[in-house]
Simulated scan of single mutants.
Amino acid sequence: MRPLFSIMGTIILLLNSSFLLAQEDNKVIKIAAGEWPPFIGQELENFGQVGKTIQEVFAQQGYQVEFHFLPWKRAFSKTNDGEFVATAVWMYTEERAELFHYSDPVAQEQFVFFHLKDSPFEWQTLSDIQGSHLGGGLGYSYGEQLDSMIEKEQVTIHRVEGVQKAFQLLEYQRVDLFPEEKHIGLFYLDKMPIETQEKITYHPTPFLANDSYLMFSKNHPEADKLLNLFNQGLATLKEAH
C-alpha cells in the first residue's frame, strides 16, 4: 500500500498541473477601445477591420482578446492607469509616447475635407483654409499642423459628439468644412437620409495620411511582453497576406 501522504501529494500535483493548464488555455487580454467605425466598433462584425486584426494577431500567440468599449478619454485614462494592458486605436503623438508604448501600425487612415457640393472647394496647402469654420469631434486630433492652426485660431472649430452631428452642421451651413477620415465619414454618411447624402462630397486629396496604433500602457506589468508578442504576430500576419 502506498503511503497516504504520497497519494495526497500526487493528487495535489495533478490539481496544480490542471489549474496551470487551465490558466494557459484561458489567457485573456483586456483592451480598452473607442468607437471608430468602420475600423473598430462594438456593434461591427468581428469588432471591425482593426478589431479583427488585433484578435487574429493575439490568437496566433494563444491569447483571447476582450474589448471594453469606452469613451475615448476614459479608455485613455484607464489604460494609462494600468487597468487595461492596451487601448485601440490611436495616432502617434510625442505626448502620448511618454505614457504608452506604440505597436507597429495596424491601419492607415486618410483624412479629407468634406464639403457641400454646392460650395466648390479646392486647396493645395492647409494655409488655403485659413479663416474657415470647421466641424469636428470632441477630443479628436487632426494631425499636428491642423491642430496647431486650431490652437492659434487660424481656423475655428465647432466640436460636437458624433460624426453624423458634424455632417448636420455642414448640411445646414453652420460650418464650412468637416475634416474626417474618409472611410469613417462615408460609413456614417451612408446611414443618413438620401437628401443629406446627395448634398455632401469630399475633396479627394488627403490632408493627413495617418497610421493607427495599439498603445500599451507603461503602467501595466505585462505591457512589454505583450507588445513584443503583438508586433511579432502582426508581422507574421502581414507576410501571410
Rank of each mutant, 00 (worst) to 15 (best):
Lys191Phe: 10
Gln197Ala: 08
Leu126Met: 07
Asp176His: 13
Ile40Ala: 06
Glu161Trp: 12
Leu177Ala: 11
Leu44Tyr: 02
Leu208Gln: 10
Thr125Glu: 15
Leu189Trp: 05
Leu170Ser: 10
Glu153Asp: 12
Gln130Pro: 00
Val160Pro: 00
Leu229Met: 12
Pro204Asn: 08
Val112Tyr: 05
Thr79Trp: 03
Lys27Trp: 08
Val57Lys: 00
Glu222Val: 01
Ala97Asn: 15
Leu20Ser: 12
Gln173Ile: 08
Gln154Ile: 10
Thr53Cys: 07
Leu146Lys: 05
Phe67Val: 03
Leu13Gly: 09
Val85Leu: 08
Lys199Met: 14
Leu227Lys: 07
Tyr142Cys: 07
Ser103Pro: 01
Ala22Thr: 12
Glu35Gly: 09
Asn231Trp: 04
Thr196Glu: 11
Leu169Arg: 06
Leu13Cys: 14
Gly185Phe: 10
Asp25Lys: 15
Ser6Thr: 14
Asp81Phe: 01
Ala59Ser: 11
Val106Cys: 01
Val85Ile: 15
Thr93His: 09
Val155Glu: 03
Val89Trp: 05
Pro179Ala: 11
Gln232Val: 06
Ser18Glu: 12
Gln164Leu: 05
Phe187Ser: 02
Met91Lys: 07
Ala166Pro: 04
Glu83Asn: 08
Ile157Asn: 04
Ile40His: 03
Glu98Trp: 01
Lys191Gln: 15
Gly41Leu: 04
Tyr102Asp: 09
Thr79Gly: 04
Lys52Asp: 14
His203Cys: 01
Leu189Ser: 09
Gln124Thr: 13
Phe84His: 02
Thr53His: 04
Gly143Tyr: 01
Pro204Glu: 10
Asp81Thr: 03
Tyr172Gln: 13
Thr87Gln: 09
Gly34Pro: 02
Ala235Met: 07
Asn46Trp: 06
Lys182Arg: 15
Pro204Val: 10
Phe100Met: 02
Gly137Ala: 08
Ser212Lys: 01
Leu227Val: 06
Thr236Met: 13
Ile194Tyr: 02
Glu239Thr: 14
Leu99Pro: 03
Glu45Gly: 00
Leu169Met: 14
Tyr92Trp: 12
Ala59Gly: 02
Pro3Gln: 11
Tyr92Gln: 01
Thr156Lys: 15
Phe69Ser: 04
Asn46Pro: 00
Ser6Lys: 15
Glu83Ile: 09
Glu109Lys: 12
Gln110His: 14
Tyr63Trp: 13
Asn228Lys: 13
Thr10Met: 14
Ile7His: 06
Phe5Asp: 08
Gln108Phe: 11
Val106Asn: 04
Pro37Arg: 01
Phe121Met: 09
Glu98Arg: 12
Leu186Ser: 04
Gln23Ser: 10
Trp72Gln: 07
Leu20Pro: 04
Asp81Gly: 03
Phe216Thr: 03
Met215Asp: 06
Glu161Ile: 09
Trp123Cys: 10
Glu24Phe: 11
Asp176Pro: 03
Glu95Ala: 15
Glu35Ser: 14
Phe84Met: 00
Asp224His: 13
Ile184Gln: 15
Pro38Ser: 05
